[in-house]
């Protein structure tokens, strides 16, 4: 992969498939782990209840538990990934675990916004490409963010949409808070005009 210190340019890695539809943020990180006041270290509890028995034992048959994430940075998920709660802990946990992109046919709004702010590129794929990815586990994929293109090798490569400002922030490492702070005069004027 060729990620630079300033941001996300492109990514070549293998896919990990979770075909289930509507994977909600309670699956990504169960609520009882939200008592943290930090955003660090949440990879340890990502998909916790899929990976561990309720008594705490590791589920040996859960493929996530033996996944080499350094070779599988791209999570391919069933339709409507990330629905449910607004918890940013979900992308924090996915990123800390090692995922750098999520591809689905549909990604829930708040998760999509949160993911892009945390170095996880959310990609909505056309149905044919999504179906192909779901049917072909563990394939090499190249994502070119600048060209907004995903190369699937033997599969149906595709171009994807991304909100231009989110793309700019991801690629250039731009901080959206800094962007907002630079508009403080406009904000003060708006407040003055209303009062």
């Amino acid at each position: 992969m060729s990620e630079t210190a300033t941001g996300f340019k492109s990514l070549s890695s293998r896919t990990y498939v979770m075909a289930q539809e509507n994977i909600d943020t309670d699956q990504i990180i169960p609520a009882r782990f939200l008592t943290t006041t930090s955003r660090q270290g949440l990879g340890a509890v990502v998909f916790h209840d899929w990976r561990y028995e309720s008594a705490g034992a590791v589920k040996e048959d859960e493929p996530l538990n033996s996944l080499d994430v350094t070779a599988h940075r791209i999570l391919v998920a069933g339709r409507n990934f990330g629905c449910g709660s607004s918890r940013e802990h979900a992308p924090w946990a996915l990123a800390d675990f090692g995922f750098q992109a999520v591809i689905s046919s549909e990604i829930a709004d708040i998760f999509r916004s949160n993911a892009a702010k945390n170095g996880i590129l959310p990609i909505v794929a056309p149905k044919a490409a999504h179906d192909w990815l779901l049917a072909h586990d563990d394939v090499e994929v190249t994502i070119d963010l600048d060209a907004q293109r995903v190369d699937l090798g033997n599969g149906p490569s595709f171009e994807f949409d991304i909100e231009p400002f989110a793309k700019h922030c991801l690629m250039e490492g731009v901080d959206p808070l800094g962007f907002l702070m630079a508009r403080m005069d406009d904000i003060a004027q708006f407040e003055a005009a209303r009062s």
Binding site: R39, S85, S86, R87, E88, I110, S113, N114, K117, N118, P176, L177
Partner: peptide, 8 residues
């Protein structure tokens, strides 16, 4: 609803 980065 918003994420925590947006809360900041």
């Amino acid at each position: 609803g918003i994420g925590t980065t947006e809360v900041s």
